[in-house]
Amino acid sequence: MNSRDQILAKLKTNKPKLIDLPLIETSIFRDEGLDIIKEFIKKVEVVGGNVLEVTSNQDVINKIESTFTNQEVCYSHIKGTQGFNTISLETIQNPHDLENLDVLILESTLGVAENGSVWLSDQEIPVRVLPFITKHLAVVISKKDLVEYMHEAYSRLSGFNYGVFLAGPSKTADIEQSLVIGAQGALSITIFLKQ
């Protein structure tokens, strides 16, 4: 017998009698008075991100250009902002060529209030390494796309090949428990909230 069949046979013999799968009753977690938008903003700040309110995609670009001045390599994946791009993804042969990316703008269609995370899947990330390799990350999301809890978030997710819940900039506290922002991934994240 190969290892696969051996392992499966052992599991079959050794497992206990079937135990029922509990149902997730999300109503017990719901806080009726919760202001989703306020909570989301609070949690993004808790996890080390910034939140700015914007009126349009052009507003996003203006705010980024005033915050991050003199950036060399920039790429935006939101509508009507091609003028911002200094690189074209078509000419990128290999994800390694994105090593010097300074500012990246992506759009998310799902944010979670309880933890300040935003969902980015291959539909929003043209090259998977983008949100990790960039120095600064900006994510644009509409207020209507925010949900309270992870349970609601998962009920909206299907059909992706890769996706990430991203909450705040990359961080570590591995040296004497001192929190340092900017480990291996993005050094900063700014969430732009649209009406």
């Binding site: 997730i24 309880e114 899947s121 998962y154 992706f160 990430v164 909450a167």
Partner: peptide, 23 residues
Amino acid sequence: LGVFLRLLARSATGQPITTYSSH
């Protein structure tokens, strides 16, 4: 995952979720 991702980081370090939860 909705259950376990809510439990994991809060229990580990007190964060509401890890920075990256990659699927």
